[in-house]
Design a binder for these strands. Structure first.
Lengths: 175, 175
DNA sequence: CTTTTCCGCCGAATAATCTTCGGCAAGATT
DNA sequence: AATCTTGCCGAAGATTATTCGGCGGAAAAG
């Protein structure tokens, strides 16, 4: 055919998600234990088509991973807490990062606001929380911490594929 | 045999997790896309044995669910924030619960501390955040809110199966 | 307005996995 | 010591994942 040596990246754009992708993502974010046949029926595609799309979504990073969500209490960590850490200069010292090694630490974000870092942790008991606080205060530059212990969790779900569109207009009252 | 009509519950105890269960949970919390054969090899059990254990772990609730974790930015919500809501008397009004209808709201906890409720939200942009704040302030009893916008997320993982045992002794320095 | 190219879907076929089913062995119970 | 229970394994069948060729439809090229 052609002998053009043109090896332009040819990189396809991230290719914005279409309606099918959205439905697939919504379904998988709610339950990843479905067969491609079941997914296909929900979104209106054949199993192979869904398979190919999921493959692409995973490789492109839209789907970060597929995981089993465990019950904190069942694995021995009934105490959930959010910890605000105030650190000097800049929060993300390598030292502070090591706190992430504890399996009790699930999230770690640097934030704009009073705190320089917010952690989500899940502990065995108050004593364990105290120990962790000790570890954090031992980090150079940490000024102080504020802990908020969760009494009840009313909602805890993964990133949803849907986005609210007509913001001012809200879904209240209607139901 | 016996003709005893004794229909005592006979309910088996939750049966504490053994080493095999722990390994299976740890593996599935990291990656639920593995075959039972692969899992079996990791934990030292046959595929059917792993299958049976996973089945039990799911039914008993230790494994809440299996989900695909999506990339916030890819689905159009690059802005993550934690919102502290101060509400009168008690936070958990039915009205406030309706906030959970927004797909932008991922977590909702009542907490002990200054705030009566902490939300984790993921928005499209600051405007969307503003609209959501408006919705929250419109809820009767809400005194105020404090928002912490995440600048960077250094860690974001599901509940880990492992628990730190010898707390005072920490994994630092060693590596 | 055609022709060409590319992309993504479908249906069928194969490969792999899941799931079920006896049978067996170890520990607990009687 | 006999019995019961529990949980494992290997094998077999059912279901699913994955690959493949071919077929449009839309966009780009002519």
């Amino acid at each position: 055919m052609e002998n053009t040596e043109d090896i332009r990246p040819k990189r396809r754009e991230p290719a914005a998600l279409d309606a099918f992708d959205r439905k697939i993502l919504a379904a998988l974010a709610a339950d990843a234990d479905q067969s491609y046949a079941a997914l296909g029926e929900k979104v209106g595609l054949s199993p192979p088509a869904v398979h190919e799309r999921v493959r692409r979504l995973k490789r492109s990073g839209v789907i970060r991973d597929v995981v089993a969500r465990l019950d904190g209490t069942s694995v021995g960590k009934p105490l959930t807490a959010f910890m605000h850490v105030e650190a000097a200069g800049w929060g993300k010292s390598e030292r502070l990062m090591q706190i992430a090694r504890f399996p009790e630490v699930e999230e770690m974000h640097s934030v704009a606001g009073d705190a320089s870092m917010i952690l989500k942790v899940r502990m065995e008991n108050p004593q364990a929380l105290e120990f962790l606080l000790g570890q954090i205060h031992a980090v150079p530059g940490v000024h102080g911490t504020k802990s908020y212990i969760a009494l009840s969790t009313y909602l805890d779900r993964p990133v949803q594929a849907d986005v609210t569109v007509g913001w001012p207009a809200v879904p209240f009252s209607s139901e």
